[in-house]
Computed example of a mutant assay.
Amino acid sequence: MSGTSEARQGGGRDRDTAGRARNARPRDGLGRPLPYGADGVERQPEGVVRGPEETVAEAQTLLEAGKPFHAHEVFEDAWKSGPEDERALWRGLAQLAVGLTHAARGNTTGGARLLRRGAGAVEEWASETGRGRPYGMDLAELSAWARELAGVVEREGKAISATGRAPRLRGRVD
């Protein structure tokens, strides 16, 4: 949470110490808000500048833990703080993670749409840059994973397990 403490201000909106609106409600592993006072999972800090290798490693750990919403936040930080020529890559990866989030929450239409949009974005970035394996990630395999999962989500029409469907960012482990 950006290293700031958050509080409800006089029954109004939650605000951080700088006065910016920030929802302080606890969240579940898929980023859904829980009632105040409920036990939630630790939130992913926002605005953290990481190197690309650290971004990929942290996002993979979160994906494997069934926290694609949190992985999306890690990718979003990279997209906002990284070099201009890589922003489309990180944005596409964030779309893949949030697509998995929606599919796990049961939003099959939005989940499938975001999975396909993210797949298209990383494919386009790889095509434009000629880089199909940036930071060890196999973008062709990630795109295939996303498109396949989008089809499964649409066919099944129900929430899926985020943990059981997490991608391997750096390819399959045999």
Rank of each mutant, 00 (worst) to 15 (best):
E73R: 14
A71M: 01
L63K: 04
P52C: 08
A38C: 00
V48Q: 11
P52K: 03
F69V: 10
H70K: 15
A57L: 08
E53P: 12
V48L: 07
G51Q: 07
T55G: 03
Q44T: 09
L62K: 09
V56T: 06
P52F: 08
V49S: 09
Q44H: 11
D39E: 14
V56Q: 02
E73H: 12
V56W: 04
A65C: 04
T61E: 13
A57G: 04
T61Y: 13
L63M: 06
A59G: 01
Q60E: 09
L62D: 01
A57W: 07
V56K: 02
V48T: 13
G51L: 05
G40E: 06
V41I: 12
F75P: 00
E58D: 14
V56Y: 04
P45D: 02
E54C: 10
E64A: 14
V74R: 11
G47W: 01
G66R: 12
E64Y: 09
V74M: 08
F75I: 00
E58F: 15
P52Y: 08
H72L: 12
E54Y: 07
H70L: 12
E58T: 15
G66V: 11
V74Y: 12
F69D: 04
A71I: 05
G66C: 12
T61G: 09
A57S: 10
E73D: 09
G51N: 10
V41F: 07
P45A: 01
F75Y: 12
P45W: 00
V74F: 10
G47E: 02
H70C: 11
P45S: 01
K67Q: 15
P68L: 00
P45K: 00
V56H: 02
A71H: 01
F75W: 11
